[in-house]
Amino acid sequence: MRFNPLASLRGPRDPSHRFETSWLLPPAILAAVRALFSIYIFVTLIFVLVWDGMHKSLGGWVTAGDQFVYFTVLTYWGLAFYFAVAAVHTATYAHTGAALLDRFPRSLQHLHALFYSTVTVFPFVVTAVYWGKLYTGPWFPVTFDAWRNVSQHASNSGFALFEIVVSRTAPQPWVHVVCLLVLLALYLALAYIARVTKGFYVYSFLDPSQSGGSGIIAAYVFGIAVACALVFAVVQGIIWLRQWATEKKLGMEGKFANADRQADSLEAAETSKA
């Protein structure tokens, strides 16, 4: 797969289709896997919402709606929509050799890259905070609760790891870490809005009476922000290592769409004739 780096100044932000290809899976298979991930996450979210609405002893659907103020749930919705969007882009690339993403304005292409950074960083933060701070045991006596928490606090990181390891994405711009911290700050504001409007703290460590005071809360918030930045740096390193191992050492530059390879061959033939 050849591409002219100068063409990226005029054409798509991602001229070699790194967001739609894998070094291991053909584009059609990658699209199918992403679609399956999206379906599983959407089904989980909707089933949990319906279950809570029907089984909450107090509040019913109103109480079930409170889940939308939890960072875990919001990031899980983010994963669902990311895999749905990524599946569409990958499927169009597999079918035509040109991804739907290529037709988007450059600003939306950059936002898709930022979307990728959120779904490859936030799930690890959620998993670490939940199992390291919030979960105290014993294991859930109700099978539904066990499945829900494993899906939202463990498999979420598995989905993120898939995108990091299996796709051909390159390391993302370091400015993304600033964007991620801004998003965390906005969520913190949402959490305290929920305290005012709904009368409860989303997480116990945000409650001064349980955490030990405002100073401890500030330390938790700062620690999570630092952890987010560190996770982003680690993800960048893993992506770089994957590129080095698969493309430089193993020569596995990627699985491309047939239409893309044919167009590349025609371009090479025309160039040789000229």
Rank of each mutant, 00 (worst) to 15 (best):
residue 174 W to L: 14
residue 154 A to D: 03
residue 114 L to Q: 01
residue 172 Q to R: 12
residue 104 F to D: 00
residue 183 L to W: 02
residue 162 F to V: 06
residue 184 L to R: 08
residue 172 Q to S: 13
residue 187 Y to C: 12
residue 143 T to I: 13
residue 150 V to E: 12
residue 107 S to F: 14
residue 186 L to R: 03
residue 115 F to K: 01
residue 200 F to T: 09
residue 136 T to F: 05
residue 203 Y to G: 02
residue 186 L to N: 01
residue 171 P to Y: 01
residue 150 V to H: 15
residue 140 F to D: 13
residue 120 T to I: 10
residue 200 F to W: 11
residue 128 A to H: 08
residue 104 F to G: 00
residue 201 Y to S: 04
residue 182 V to G: 13
residue 121 V to F: 05
residue 154 A to R: 05
residue 198 K to Q: 15
residue 107 S to C: 09
residue 162 F to L: 11
residue 195 R to Y: 10
residue 170 A to T: 14
residue 204 S to A: 14
residue 132 G to D: 04
residue 188 L to R: 01
residue 191 A to F: 02
residue 136 T to L: 13
residue 112 H to P: 02
residue 160 A to C: 07
residue 137 G to C: 06
residue 149 N to K: 04
residue 125 V to R: 03
residue 157 S to E: 08
residue 176 H to N: 14
residue 131 W to Q: 10
residue 119 V to R: 00
residue 189 A to R: 14
residue 192 Y to G: 09
residue 115 F to W: 09
residue 132 G to M: 08
residue 135 Y to W: 14
residue 107 S to T: 07
residue 176 H to P: 00
residue 161 L to H: 06
residue 115 F to G: 06
residue 192 Y to W: 12
residue 203 Y to D: 09
residue 193 I to Y: 14
residue 109 Q to H: 10
residue 125 V to E: 05
residue 106 R to Y: 03
residue 178 V to G: 14
